[in-house]
Nucleic acid binder design. Structure first.
Lengths: 264, 264
DNA sequence: AAGTGGTCTAGACCACCTG
DNA sequence: AGGTGGTCTAGACCACTTT
């Protein structure tokens, strides 16, 4: 880091004072990000203070500090080198939709300071056909909620999404009351559902007449189709999201951060 | 788990005996996977022994056991529920190319017991144009190695790949000697390069005449284009992989496992 | 109440990198 | 040689789930 002087230790909120607190490691992650990375106190390419110094500064053990640094690494903010230290990585300012993270389009856009609108929204009651029943692991003909809508960015329709949720997962009135553009956000907010991960298949497609009409493009335009199944920690499917995405509109890119698989 | 009787503790290789050993947590991960999961001793949906029991069985601390379980969770084999235990997840036997993991096609195929061949392989010396120079963070005109080739699966050309590596990263003779279908595999084998992660952009495309000819399909066929930049832990780009992938051939699917972001 | 996972600590030793 | 991260331990306490 550039500043040379010793810094005063940081006092965290007293542990006992907070009822159901965040993990200490997460608080420390945020502090490191704020105090060293986003503040540009440590420029990209330079080293954070050592784990021992950070542990002392925040008054936590080295184990906790390491957990915090691991989180920052997962977030792509730093990389950690044995015998060297934690290097701050350069940050891209391109709005990109990171497919490896389970978040809604709305959340990504909001974090990037942009806004996505939702149009032609209805929450319909329907029943599962054979394909949907198999995917959601429910009987054929079981009641489901279907949530089709268009995503608008800067006045342009950029995606057509259709979510399918088993009806008995959440009462329809709850879904209607809490929905604000993303079914996933509603489910993620219900801790008792244990929403955990999703598997998302990616296909290149040419839009059919129906999809093209909804997106205001010519039939045959090339785009991406995504078929995503969201699961609980118990591997029970909770929602299937089908999405047709324009790619000719440059508001974002789909990307994946691929990681080497190693221990820790 | 189903078996009721007590099991004998497992004796790991003595620590001092092994020079540069694998992490203990990784050995334990493998043991749990082999002894409980792949052996079907614990069926999908059922619980592994508790952390404390596993720790005792393998003679390691609970912290180490938890690291092992976290690895199994990352691998998609189990999910962990607070107050309940570690649930074994159902395993799919579909050959899928998991985009969130940095591995070559060859490695994925090999692990799935299938084989991918490489055709029309040459390792050419060239120089970086403006676009390539910017991506690889090298001067325009700097020497690079270009490795174009076709991927063959069951007699069908399924992808056209072109890798670009700065020439001074590895001596060309080393690259030629060690190359066996994947540039990424060569780089991953060189620990001193610190290959760490990649960022991969995904685009739907219609194949040009040139690409279509190489893949033996009609020009205009829809497929996926991937532009991937592989980085070291120091965020230095080491190889750019451009790939055009057929999607009409059903040997595999591209998918991403998306995870909720939480601590730990 | 009992058992499970979640978090955190202090200390130890090892492996790696740089001067 | 000295500093850095990598791994591991034993013990403690807390939060969640089930009985």
């Amino acid at each position: 880091m550039s500043a040379g002087g010793e810094e005063p230790p940081v006092v965290l909120a007293p542990r006992a004072a907070v009822k159901s607190r965040r993990a200490l490691a997460d608080e420390v992650s945020d502090l490191i990000a704020r105090e060293y990375i986003f503040s540009d106190v440590v420029a990209p390419g330079e080293l954070l203070p050592s784990e021992a110094k950070l542990a002392e500064r925040y008054g936590v053990s080295r184990v906790t500090t390491r957990a915090s640094l691991r989180t920052l690494r997962e977030a792509g903010l730093i990389s950690i080198r044995h015998g060297v230290g934690s290097v701050v990585l350069p940050r891209s300012d391109v709005l990109r939709y990171g497919l490896d993270r389970l978040s809604s389009f709305e959340t990504f856009a909001r974090e990037a300071g942009r806004d996505i609108e939702t149009d032609s929204l209805v929450i319909e009651e329907s029943v599962a056909d054979e394909d949907m029943a198999r995917a959601l692991a429910i009987p054929i003909g079981a009641p489901i909620l279907v949530v089709p809508r268009t995503k608008i960015y800067k006045g342009t329709a950029v995606a057509w999404l259709v979510d399918h949720v088993p009806r008995d997962l959440l009462p329809p009135e709850v879904m209607r009351a809490e929905f604000s553009g993303s079914v996933l956000d509603v489910l993620l907010a219900h801790d008792e559902l244990h929403v955990d991960h999703a598997e998302c298949e990616i296909e290149p497609v040419t839009f059919s007449e129906e999809i093209a009409a909804r997106l205001g493009v010519e039939p045959g335009t090339v785009g991406l189709f995504m078929d995503e199944l969201v699961y609980t920690t118990e591997a029970k499917p909770v929602v299937r999201c089908l999405g047709w995405h324009r790619h000719d509109h440059s508001y974002r890119r789909f990307y994946v951060r691929r990681r080497r698989q190693v221990g820790d």
